[in-house]
Amino acid sequence: MSVAEHPQPFRFVTHLTLTELTGRRAHDLLELLRHLKTVPLSVIYYHTHHFLERRRGLAPSPPNDFAFWISHTLQEGTLGERLAAIDTIQFTRLENLREAIVSTIETYLASAKSLRPAPEGSDFFFMNSRSILLPTSYEAATLEEFAHALKKVSVHSIYHHVFEARLRMERGNDFAKWLAGLGEKDLAWQITLMDPYTQTLESLRRRILRLVERRLFEINHVPA
């Protein structure tokens, strides 16, 4: 049996969000760009992440609100696709993600011949969210306990430790950091390399669990 114990148990927290309006809106691509350059980073975070917690099952979801609005409301399919393809996982700071979005739009605008405004009533509303973190009853000191808790916690808890901790709080993937501290550096690295943006939170839970359970099997069955 694996008995390695982390000096600091992993305490799973969950998060709940409250959506706020910023009072800013865009009617066309130029207005969108102007606001994108100046909105607080929490606004960039909201519009590139809130869909992750809403995605269920196999229902198609937009990759981010900017791409969705540009494709579906402004009917600028090429630009929408380019924005959708921005690989969010490569960024560890929101400021860099903002720069990537802004530069993709600026490049497109440099060669765009004409721009359509949004139809009436379809403006883009810039929003923000407040995150309220709450303790759960789950904590883990060993890899077994970690696997057990991971099966039980809500997807909002997984979201917090994987997405919010990494990009909004800029402290990295909580799971990977804690596992590295437990001496599970390979496992931590495998989790760091995952692209959590292109799967549902339940799929992400299953994938992380599979890696953890495989490692537990190795520890328990493969002679040292």
Partner: peptide
């Protein structure tokens, strides 16, 4: 089910209450 049932509405009111008492962007309750 995900967005417009009474339990989500209730949760939002509770979050409004908490957030008026604590102004931070991320609140550790």
């Amino acid at each position: 089910l995900d967005n417009f049932l009474l339990t989500r509405h209730l949760r939002d009111y509770l979050l409004v209450f908490l957030s008026t008492l604590h102004p931070q962007d991320i609140l550790r309750a």
